[in-house]
Design a protein around this nucleic acid. Sequence first.
DNA 1: GATGAATGAGATTTCATTCAT
DNA 2: TATGAATGAAATCTCATTCAT
Lengths: 210, 210, 210, 210
Amino acid sequence: MGVAERRLREKEQRRMTILDAAEKVFFEKGVDRATMDAVAETAELSKGLLYFYFRNKEDLAHAIAHRGLRVLGQFFEKALREHEKGIDQVVAIGRAYMRFAREYPDYFNIMSWFEAQPGDCGSPGTYAEACNAQGSECIGLVAQAVRNGIADGTIRPELDPLETAITLWAQTHGLIHIISYKEVQVRHEVDAAHLVETAFDLMKAGLEPR
Amino acid sequence: MGVAERRLREKEQRRMTILDAAEKVFFEKGVDRATMDAVAETAELSKGLLYFYFRNKEDLAHAIAHRGLRVLGQFFEKALREHEKGIDQVVAIGRAYMRFAREYPDYFNIMSWFEAQPGDCGSPGTYAEACNAQGSECIGLVAQAVRNGIADGTIRPELDPLETAITLWAQTHGLIHIISYKEVQVRHEVDAAHLVETAFDLMKAGLEPR
Amino acid sequence: MGVAERRLREKEQRRMTILDAAEKVFFEKGVDRATMDAVAETAELSKGLLYFYFRNKEDLAHAIAHRGLRVLGQFFEKALREHEKGIDQVVAIGRAYMRFAREYPDYFNIMSWFEAQPGDCGSPGTYAEACNAQGSECIGLVAQAVRNGIADGTIRPELDPLETAITLWAQTHGLIHIISYKEVQVRHEVDAAHLVETAFDLMKAGLEPR
Amino acid sequence: MGVAERRLREKEQRRMTILDAAEKVFFEKGVDRATMDAVAETAELSKGLLYFYFRNKEDLAHAIAHRGLRVLGQFFEKALREHEKGIDQVVAIGRAYMRFAREYPDYFNIMSWFEAQPGDCGSPGTYAEACNAQGSECIGLVAQAVRNGIADGTIRPELDPLETAITLWAQTHGLIHIISYKEVQVRHEVDAAHLVETAFDLMKAGLEPR
DNA sequence: GATGAATGAGATTTCATTCAT
DNA sequence: TATGAATGAAATCTCATTCAT
């Protein structure tokens, strides 16, 4: 019994070794310019082994994005836990997203890359599928917050929780993306932090009942 | 002077020929999978000449995105013209963006690609720069609508027009992107059209004074 | 002794399991495109074990060809048994070869592959050697038929039996090969069945005394 | 006019340079073990250029086989020219094939490789197609000889010229193949030269009228 | 005997870009 | 201006084989 178990554990560790190396390379070079050669070299493993553990480069990238999404989910859960009112939870989740993007810009970037991929739902057994599932879970947490808000009267009752959650998720992602990628500050002489406040102000006002 | 003039005109025409061919190819294959060979062949021109008129492949893609942004700008202007109240103008612009994405999905895609590029502001003389300028102009139109709304009392006066405009632009782009790329309908069993309405409802409610 | 015996039997069974799996894979994909991984998976055995029972992939392929050659040998023997006159035996063997190629095209193909390998006689202990031996046995049967024909006056006495046998074997293989691989029918608008008859006519006429 | 013409000439020369290098490599290593890298290095050209002039490795191999088939065709034509009677022409063609295989064993080998390829007729514009055409031409010469023989009474009139030609071609190829690849001499203690004579004796006797 | 992770050496192919003419 | 051959640097992926356990 011990043998099979240990093997499994070791295999999982190898997978992590590879994933760590891939993160290093993908974060530094970006998904497109990163090469499997570089990952292999960084992991001090043979290139063939990479393809033993991961279908292809894309799958590896998705695995990293999946890691990021798991972290993001934890951020969201914490935000949910630490606030009472639904509206506060929604805003806290939004801020959590911002903080995540600031603290883990590389994860955010690779998640952006993932979002930019034309989106088949991911073949079963791929990390793309796992990413989609994890993303849905995140959106589910937002929807939960919206539902809470509707229940406690802090959010307009006529809103559909799921649709609202998707909207907020997409909007927030779009916003962070433009801030971190497009040098809005430089181009429009705008303070990013203040911009964010404006955005939250807008979102909050949109959600609250009159 | 006639000669020089004709030369200039011809040169501009060549550029357009190339751009038309590039659109065809880039639209069909996507920026990454399109090749300069295919563009040259489609344009019935030599590959070398492409590099005479455009710095590189990226520049060519930017030129196409620039075309798209110009069309989008016209959509925005029309939306602005056809409505009186600021808030209506803002909403109309948002809807115009949606319509643009539906009518010119290829332009929207290449603009998404542009947005996803890590954003140096564009070296002077490149189409990247032109894209940034054109994008700013679009945002300027949104800002104008916000300003109008503040002036006519249909939008909350404490909002900063530029920041609000940037926010709306980013949010709307993020939303359209997720709808068209990520099969939200499939994954969340949500009706895209209704989702859009929810989003506009949220945005509008966020902007309007109590 | 019982133990050692059982062990030997089990070992032989393992070998057969592997060979069966290899046949399935090699037949489906062809020797070159078949992989040891696929064989191992089909056999539900580890890849390493394959190399315990067979030197290498080539050896495995030879083992299959050897199986085919044994079947072919049986066809030849039956043809020999069922006819009296030498000339009839030769022709029957030829037809048996044809029938074999039709009934076991996969064996014929792998034997063709074997024929196409640059032919060292096979290191001792390899299946290549066994193939050569088996092939010689087949040729031996043809030679026997020729000898019978010379004895009973149905075949020209001045022919050397072994050389004639080799010639007939090579010619027939070449003929079947071209028919089954090269789409003669399509390219030359020829009926394969009739072509075969012509070939036998030629061969028979070549053997018979005036 | 001079420019385009010269370009064309130069291009053809390049193609020959590559073909020469490919021959060297393919002849030395065999088709399967030869690499495009080696060809490029031998030609002192970039690997990319190989793919500019030839579709892929297979096409390059086919181009070499095509060269061989052209030489073989010349051998056949000479044999046809130098003999009067049809039967003599057929035999002379057979001997020419033998001589070709002896003088150009590398060409013969690559042609054998070509014969062993599962035979789609060759996509238009590929050298595979050219090989098939050239092969048909060779068979056509054999058929002509058979026709001549029927006309001058040296070959049995009931034989179908084309079918007979195909049969002879296939048989002869099979025979040479086994002689040059399979070390018949060693395995069967047979003299190759004498074996050949036996084969021709058989074929000739099969063709001649009683 | 048996396992299966690990190796490592390519193989084929693609293209953006340049440059001699 | 215009051509298009030439470059060259990767990039992804495949497998036969080995070896520690």
